[in-house]
């Protein structure tokens, strides 16, 4: 404990941003201060800068799978697009969250999402907010709500400590469900996956995941 306090005294200065290890960079030309270990997204949120996200949730480690949080990073003469939820902060970089380049990639992603999960109201609202109202891609399943962000699988594994949900198959057949798509006794029915789902796709999938108890309680009594 004393050892830790020592560390903390160094790490946590009164205004919570320590002078020595501060990483200074710019978001949208605004000077921001971050610390080692923060991501661009976390810094932006701390400063109240809005970056849209879908697959990011504080309860689980970020994976950068939905690519919606892409931002433009400029360093010297270089410019590139990075996923802000997994990109660590670096001194001297400049981040732009609302450039044509960023808008372009966001709109593409949203258009693709509109085609892959057209039934989701959340996705539709988000797309509309960014000016995307229709999609050029073909819709395979008009009732699909799931965008396969994998949050449900991650929360089950990282928070609950089980593996009752899996991301099954690959490529265009990729989907989320119980292993082998059969209700499983591994699932304890805590509903974390339903809570964390950014669209309400999990609500329907959940009933295909949770199994019935091996022995109904009435038999045990």
């Amino acid at each position: 404990m004393r050892y830790l306090q020592g560390i903390l005294q160094i790490r946590c200065c009164p205004d919570h941003i320590r002078e020595i290890a501060v990483i200074e960079f710019k978001i949208n030309d605004k000077e921001v201060k971050a610390r080692e270990g923060w991501t661009i997204l976390e810094t932006a949120k701390e400063y109240g800068i809005d970056i849209p996200t879908l697959c990011h949730h504080p309860a689980v480690a970020p994976t950068g799978s939905c690519r919606l949080c892409m931002v433009e990073l400029r360093e010297g003469d270089w410019s590139k697009l990075v996923a802000s939820c997994i990109y660590p902060v670096k001194k001297g970089i400049t981040i732009y969250t609302e450039t044509p380049k960023v808008h372009n990639v966001r709109r593409w992603i949203l258009e693709m999402l509109l085609a892959s999960c057209p039934a989701s109201e959340e996705i539709r609202e988000l797309a509309q907010k960014h000016g995307v109202i229709s999609t050029r891609f073909s819709v395979h399943d008009p009732n699909q709500k799931c965008l396969i962000c994998g949050l449900c699988q991650r929360v089950c594994e990282e928070v609950v400590g089980l593996s009752a949900i899996a991301v099954l198959d690959r490529g265009v057949h990729k989907k989320v469900g119980a292993p082998f798509l059969r209700p499983t006794d591994i699932c304890v029915g805590c509903g974390s996956c339903v809570t964390i789902c950014p669209t309400d796709a999990m609500q329907e999938i959940f009933d295909t995941v949770r199994g019935k108890p091996e022995l109904p309680l009435s038999q045990l009594a």
Partner: peptide
């Protein structure tokens, strides 16, 4: 955002 790293550091301090 107490749940993200910046907020967590504020709580710890």
């Amino acid at each position: 955002q107490p749940c993200l790293t910046p907020g967590m550091e504020q709580i710890i301090s």
